[in-house]
Design a protein around this nucleic acid. Structure first.
Lengths: 129, 129
DNA sequence: GCATATGCTTTGCGTCCGAAAGTAGACGGC
DNA sequence: GCCGTCTACTTTCGGACGCAAAGCATATGC
């Protein structure tokens, strides 16, 4: 009947989407970091994710405070350099998010298939617009 | 090298996520509507999506103004009733979003597979925390 | 030693979500 | 035929947040 599949506790898949991760920029950051176990430099992340300095900084702070990424301050020569890594709990949360996203997507695809054409007529008692 | 696949124009998949749709509540609304060509009543949507009246109203207005859904005011007997339907362009945009989401998810899964273990040691020049 | 570049952080603003309050008419009791 | 409650939404409000621009501190080039 409904296009969304029920998940164990009776809620729907998209309800479980982690707000912290369900954000373009942060999802990009985490995807980049997930692929690089050794971490990525601030500057690399910036170009990889097409983010401005300020933006990346802000998101990294958020992610760090939530415990998803670890920030290491260091130097290359005399210039400061920031290394970012996914923490173990960050990786777990990322994987959880992906799992939920898979369900959401499955629901969405199913719903999209369910009906391809609109009825042109309105039911009785309804007026257009 | 990067975990994200490049899309035709050189941008990354998640860059293309439609902000309007990349929102739990709205995604739920559209998924519900996509599955019901005849539309859904306000009250049905409310319970289906676990939204409050105010919330649903707000999101529907947004979606209507963006042209994704059509709102029809009618009556059942003497009580007002609102019917919501996906418009054709709404359906298209929904399908586009799903397509992007599929790429994003594929990237994410790939990234997650890429490295399962963190190195415990920091590179030279970096200090923990 | 002054301008410019690097490597971020902080501030400010506009937007947006969600909860709570508000509105308007229908229905029921009495 | 008034009053409280219910249905069916809409509007307002507060707080969060994303992004851009400005700020800051050090390093390097000329």
């Amino acid at each position: 009947m409904t296009a969304r599949r029920d998940v164990p506790d009776g809620r729907y898949a998209y309800d479980g989407l982690d707000r912290l991760l369900h954000e373009k920029a942060r999802l990009g950051i985490l995807t980049s970091l997930a692929a690089q176990a050794d971490g990525l430099l601030f500057a690399d992340l910036k170009t990889l994710c097409h983010l401005t300095d300020g933006n990346l900084s802000r998101h990294l702070t958020v992610l760090q405070e939530a415990g998803l990424v670890a920030i290491h301050k260091g130097y290359r020569g005399r210039r400061p350099q920031t290394l970012c890594r996914l923490t173990d709990s960050g990786r777990k949360r990322y994987l959880d998010y992906i799992a939920v996203l898979e369900s959401v997507l499955a629901d969405a695809v199913e719903a999209a298939k369910a009906s391809r054409k609109h009825r042109r007529v309105l039911p009785e008692g309804f007026s257009p617009a």
